[in-house]
Design a protein around this nucleic acid. Structure first.
Lengths: 182, 182
DNA sequence: GTACCATTCAATCATCTGATTGATGGATAG
DNA sequence: CTATCCATCAATCAGATGATTGAATGGTAC
């Protein structure tokens, strides 16, 4: 496999496991089975490697954002898509949580996180308008504000709650959310 | 001032500023103007110091949770209380976010965070029932589920969004939330 | 074949970091 | 006065950590 990509993926997995706090370049190199100097050959600094992880994680999430399914069901499909992602790639939300926290002290990361948030909100706003027109939900007074609120809730749900909270609790909250906006 | 308390508070502030990732015992001692050995005199290990910070932060948040105001206005007062806290002590939510993330890898912290969450949810459940009885909001089918959802949203709102998002955006989302449950 | 370039490694550096040690000053009790 | 304990400090340790260096290997161009 491509070394550069393998290193990013290893770093991604280690961040998911130990947070930024526990990320060590040595561990990343070891996980790929490569010398530390090789890591520095591809990523001159640890910071550059982290940038790679940011791109990898955000790209991975972006692909989930793309609407699909029959027009009237797109909103529900969006929730289902997020929930499926949380089941298949729980690490992704852990890493995104770490990135959100880090964005507080890192302008570059903050900008990237914000961009993804905005795309997410715009997507959701469109889906809300769509669903309202189809009669699937009540017409919200301000779809964009509702979308922002929903994004906030989903972030809190998937990025902050530990897996101590079983998947059932997450499903329950998702259903409660759908009921609330219906 | 009490040394032990001063050290905890300094650590608390440094975590708010640099996250757990950037917490250094030396910096904590320096901030109090004390030798590193003195820090270790009061807290044998860094982990013990962090436990102190956990207690400090959570205690600080608990006091905000206590209901107050006229019966019919308690729900609104709760939101107002949280919002005020976010204005006067923004660091508190930063630290709580850090703790939530760390709870994923630390059973002890996870338990404490979960306890506070449960108290928060119970408080909110009672307030929702109260508000419904007073006719301030529609009677929710499952107040406890709604409460859990609101807690999730508030956590996402205050613990994940950087201050890049101006306070106005936070106010807007809070109002949208109040409108949604009314 | 030789020169060149990309990739990788073993060894090492400089610094950071949590923690320990032994000593010192001051307060208190007998 | 002296023995004892508390609080604090300067100095230091051992291990961790990000990064660098110089050499080896293998492939490609000419």
């Amino acid at each position: 496999m491509d070394r550069q990509e393998a290193l990013v993926q290893a770093a991604y997995e280690l961040i998911a496991e130990h947070g930024f706090e526990g990320l060590r370049t040595r561990d990343v190199a070891a996980k790929v089975g490569v010398n530390i100097a090789t890591l520095h050959y591809y990523f001159p600094t640890k910071e550059k490697l982290i940038r790679g992880v940011v791109g990898y994680a955000m790209g991975r999430f972006r692909t989930t954002l793309q609407p699909s399914g029959s027009p009237g069901e797109q909103l529900r499909a969006h929730f289902a898509g997020i929930r499926r992602l949380a089941r298949t790639d729980p690490e992704l939300f852990v890493v995104m949580g770490e990135l959100a926290m880090r964005g507080r002290r890192d302008r570059g990361i903050a900008a990237i996180v914000r961009d993804v948030d905005i795309v997410w909100e715009k997507t959701l706003t469109a889906l809300l308008r769509h669903a309202a027109k189809e009669g699937a939900i009540a017409n919200p007074a301000k779809p964009d504000e509702l979308a922002a609120l929903i994004v906030t809730t989903l972030k809190g749900l998937f990025m902050l709650s530990g897996d101590s909270r079983d998947p059932k609790a997450i499903d329950r909250q998702l259903h409660a959310l759908e009921r609330l906006i219906a």
